[in-house]
């Protein structure tokens, strides 16, 4: 059964004269336990698709079905808990003056969960952080550790889906490898479904089975990991992205 079904989704920002349609018309299906990737350049609408799925942007039309339930623009609290987001910048996405423990408690309070202390401890353990980190402040953590906290905060509500918005773009390669391995382990252990947004094709292909290439608010191609690896993609834009991920291509004169 598919975990996420999106049909003719269009998302816009602003009203009246200044309304901009950022996502024009996208449809896709993500199976339970699958990782679906979204790539494209800045401004193509990939984060906006995540925003609409996560309940951050309500100005959308089309049909979204999550875990068999058709979602309205306004959602119930249990519908909101089903998918959680992890953002790009671990420096900006965690409250600088709250301890890690308090940051992790907040979603529990909002969603009225019980056994809060145990849940906080479990979340920290899940992402491989020592328990005493709950008394630390974000500035006492490295970038990779902060990104683990952001993942713990997303996991604490026991979601079925993680929406990952460039989760490793702000990290060094060595730390990026740790986070990508962690995400892979978590997906297997917790049977999670991922949607991963990134501009780095190699990262997306590492984690995802199918990858949608976006340009100007639409999908130009949905390719499998295999297709990206052996280069049997059809759209020229996808090819440009593949070349780009290999580095600098010297101009043919």
């Amino acid at each position: 059964m598919s975990m996420i079904n999106v049909d003719h989704l269009a998302v816009s920002y602003g009203r009246g004269e200044t309304m901009t349609r950022v996502v024009k018309d996208v449809s896709f299906d993500v199976a339970e336990g699958e990782s679906f990737g979204l790539v494209g350049e800045s401004g193509c609408g990939k984060s906006t698709v995540l925003g609409a799925l996560g309940g951050r942007n309500r100005q959308w039309t089309g049909t979204i079905t999550i875990d068999g339930e058709t979602i309205n623009q306004k959602r119930s609290i249990s519908q909101l808990a089903k998918q959680q987001m992890v953002f790009q910048d671990p420096f900006g996405s965690i409250h600088p003056r709250h301890t890690i423990g308090r940051a992790l408690l907040e979603p529990l309070e909002i969603h009225g969960k019980n056994n809060r202390q145990e849940r906080v401890e479990k979340a920290l353990k899940d992402v491989g952080l020592p328990l005493n980190f709950r008394y630390r402040f974000p500035h006492q953590l490295s970038g990779g550790q902060r990104q683990r906290v952001a993942i713990a905060r997303a996991l604490i509500l026991e979601p079925r889906i993680l929406l990952l918005d460039e989760p490793t773009s702000a990290l060094d390669v060595s730390i990026q490898a740790e986070i990508l391995n962690l995400l892979k382990d978590l997906r297997e252990r917790e049977k999670l479904t991922y949607i991963l947004v990134s501009h780095d094709l190699a990262v997306v292909a590492h984690l995802c089975d199918r990858i949608a290439v976006m340009q100007n608010g639409t999908f130009v191609e949905v390719a499998s990991k295999k297709q990206l690896q052996n280069g049997s993609v059809t759209h020229p834009y996808t090819r440009t992205l593949i070349d780009g991920s290999r580095g600098y291509v010297v101009k043919q004169v």
Binding site: V173, A202, H206, L228, Q229, I242, S245
Partner: peptide, 9 residues
């Protein structure tokens, strides 16, 4: 540590 299209792991 680098994910790569050419050498998937």
């Amino acid at each position: 540590a680098l994910p790569s299209l050419d050498h998937p792991r």
